[in-house]
């Protein structure tokens, strides 16, 4: 009898939750939410935070070799922004009842993922341009759509993050544009980076809609508002034109404008590569996590010291 009542109450709550969300209203940390909603968000937000943090590695790889004072300043400030986004997103995830320590452990043990794109190496300075322009560009398309996601703290984080990402994208594009105006070697470097980053950038939007495992709930609960393919198409349409303006070639022989649909048709993405990298067998998966673990372990004594000092102070003044 009691159980039945509880089950009925649960159903009722779920119904009113979905109705509320359906009206486009935001859920806040103290509101009731289905466990599935909570766990979906924890997975998505922490994955997003981890992506910001792991993304500091390929870009950090070029800080000490940035070719001008201004370039160094811009790159360092950008990476700082990414780290700040990481902090902001970790806090948003914490409102759902998971601690930063738990999230870091999930990252380091491979339970939590981060964006696949950061498993690719940044080999030349042009890669810094390509990452800013393509990777941040793809991220923005996704994040703009998330500004209206149903969870309040996540949506507010996205509004703030989008503003900074659009700067990054412009700065990345500027690096590419300058190189395309430069020496033959610079142009070659820029095209090479384009060739290497284009396809992984398209993969950032995830599998085709039919193959996307978490989509149904995410749509019903308004966590997600646009499909993977829809967002990918949007990115392609805007980026192809930007590439043309500065004389870069998109490395896709099947790419062509489709008058009927008003969009670019594109060649098939190498999904074998996508799933292989997700499973941990990309160029740098192991190094990225090893780097994170190393820094974390080397910093353990610092965190312990800070904690010990804090406790001593608390004792002193209590």
């Amino acid at each position: 009898m009691n159980n039945e009542n509880t089950a009925l109450a649960q159903d009722e709550r779920l119904r009113s939750f979905e109705e509320y969300v359906g009206e486009g209203k935001a859920i806040e940390p103290r509101d009731w939410m289905p466990e599935g909603y909570r766990s979906h968000l924890i997975r998505q937000i922490s994955q997003h935070a981890h992506s910001e943090v792991i993304g500091m590695q390929p870009e950090g790889n070029w800080i000490t070799r940035a070719p001008s004072i201004r370039a160094k300043q811009i790159l360092l400030a950008k990476i700082q922004d990414e780290g700040g986004h990481g902090l902001y997103l970790y806090s948003a995830a914490e409102t759902l009842g998971i601690s930063r320590e738990e999230m870091l452990e999930q990252l380091q043990t491979g339970k939590a993922k981060y964006s696949n794109i950061f498993n690719y190496p940044s080999l030349t300075w042009a890669d810094i341009g390509a990452i800013g322009w393509l990777v941040d560009g793809a991220a923005i398309v996704n994040q703009v759509s998330l500004q209206r996601t149903s969870y309040g703290p996540y949506s507010r984080a996205m509004v703030r993050i989008c503003k900074e990402e659009s700067f990054h994208q412009r700065q990345g594009y500027e690096i590419m544009a300058n190189m395309m105006k430069g020496t033959p070697e610079q142009r070659e470097m820029a095209q090479d980076a384009m060739n290497r980053w284009w396809w992984p950038s398209l993969m950032m939007f995830g599998p085709h809609d039919g193959d996307s495992p978490h989509s149904a709930d995410a749509f019903r609960w308004k966590i997600k508002r646009h499909s993977n393919d829809e967002l990918r198409q949007k990115f392609i349409d805007k980026t192809v034109q930007q590439a043309e303006v500065i004389g870069l070639t998109i490395p896709d022989a099947d790419l062509k404008w489709n008058e009927e649909t008003g969009h670019y048709d594109h060649g098939e993405i190498n999904w074998d590569e996508f799933y292989r990298v997700i499973k941990g067998n990309g160029p740098l998966n192991k190094q990225r996590i090893a780097h994170h673990i190393k820094a974390h372990e080397e910093g353990a004594w610092v965190r312990e010291a800070a904690q010990a000092y804090k406790q001593k102070q608390a004792q002193k003044y209590n």
């Binding site: 943090v53 500091m56 590695q57 950090g60 800080i63 000490t64 160094k72 360092l76 990476i79 700082q80 780290g83 700040g84 990481g86 902090l87 970790y90 780097h291 820094a295 080397e298 910093g299 353990a300 610092v302 965190r303």
Partner: peptide
């Protein structure tokens, strides 16, 4: 700048 991605905690990295 060499500390980037190597700090003991993210806050200190920044």
């Amino acid at each position: 700048a060499e500390w980037c991605s190597n700090g003991p905690i993210l806050e200190e990295d920044l």
